[in-house]
Design a protein around this nucleic acid. Sequence first.
DNA 1: GCGGCAATTATTCAAGCGTATAATAACGAT
DNA 2: ATCGTTATTATACGCTTGAATAATTGCCGC
Lengths: 213, 213
Amino acid sequence: MTENRRTYHRASEAERREDLITATLDCIAESGIQGATVRQIATRAGVTGGLIRHYFTGKDQMLQAAYRKMMTGMTEAAIAAAIEGETAKARLRRFIVANVTPPVTDPRTLSLWAAFISHIQIDPSFAAIHRENYLAFLEALETLLTAFFKEEQRLVSSDQCRRYAISLSALVDGLWLEGTLAADMFADRELAENALSSVEALLHLQPGELSDE
Amino acid sequence: MTENRRTYHRASEAERREDLITATLDCIAESGIQGATVRQIATRAGVTGGLIRHYFTGKDQMLQAAYRKMMTGMTEAAIAAAIEGETAKARLRRFIVANVTPPVTDPRTLSLWAAFISHIQIDPSFAAIHRENYLAFLEALETLLTAFFKEEQRLVSSDQCRRYAISLSALVDGLWLEGTLAADMFADRELAENALSSVEALLHLQPGELSDE
DNA sequence: GCGGCAATTATTCAAGCGTATAATAACGAT
DNA sequence: ATCGTTATTATACGCTTGAATAATTGCCGC
């Protein structure tokens, strides 16, 4: 009997995992965690459902991998933007702006982020992943701040630096959230300008000290 | 044949709707949107599944009603705390603090909030509900701010007031988020204090002007 | 107390879910 | 070329899902 079995190609493990994770994120972003079924994900990745359990012990583990990838992607995008700045001040500014500018402010990203957040209470492994990445974000911000204060020859205790980092992080997160949820309410640069002047205020800088070239 | 049909009591429409919505929120908070199945919700509400379609055209409509109830509950909690203040300054302070204090900072609330946010991209009716409540929150904050500036005899344009409201709202949301997600990282009053001093900075007040009695 | 209305239960249905297992085809080693 | 390995497909299974329908029972007006 000549069965019509579809042809395929054997991919490397890394490649296949990557594809599956990407497909998972796509599905969640498009139709929520409800829509991220094994079959949907497999279809989008161009494979059949059974393959997922060849690379992951189950759907849950794949979701976790996807969460990890998404979170590190977000933080790294902001850090990548920052390191291109020449001074500590420029790096701080670029970091802030990057977090309230596409592609970080993106409906897809927000949808993914929220979907995972809502699973933190249900599955503790998601909480661990979140914590890990929140701390990384906080530390990146704290490092930028410390360097900035040093460059400005302004003495700030490490305790105060941490408090600043928490506030700034909250502000950035909040603006990111609102800017993404109500993108139509804000003009192109409005969000970034608001973020910068808010940061200036939070750090007790001169108006324009951060935003001006 | 004497079938064993369970006894029940005919409730008023308002009562039953309320029960169903509460049960829906409980289910989502506890086990995510995935766990909020018609049967789970019905069980928790003490009825059988079929009844849901007697009060709502479908599961989706019930979810929307639940979202609406949850959001108005959050905003109203903060507003209720605010109006007890005697001066405009006190009202503003109470509003800020209420938003970073239980019961607003509560894992259950966060879980619910995130679950719904993640459905905004999928179902436009959820987006409308969100928008509605975000604007209400913003307006409440703007009103408090305007009154506060007037009380302080400080002249602030309504444009600037709106910008302040957006920044404050973002900050509060962000702190709420982080404080709830990583509750163990913050001491009891730390979050509220951080919020108040951050607001002071954002509004260019004297340190302690808001937080001090 | 007793009809009749409708709120509620009980049951059924098709579709879709995650997972398990068996068959198969791709590809590197030989 | 052929073989052996194993990545991949195909199929099946048992459950759960949201919804539709039929049967019943609580309750209000009389």
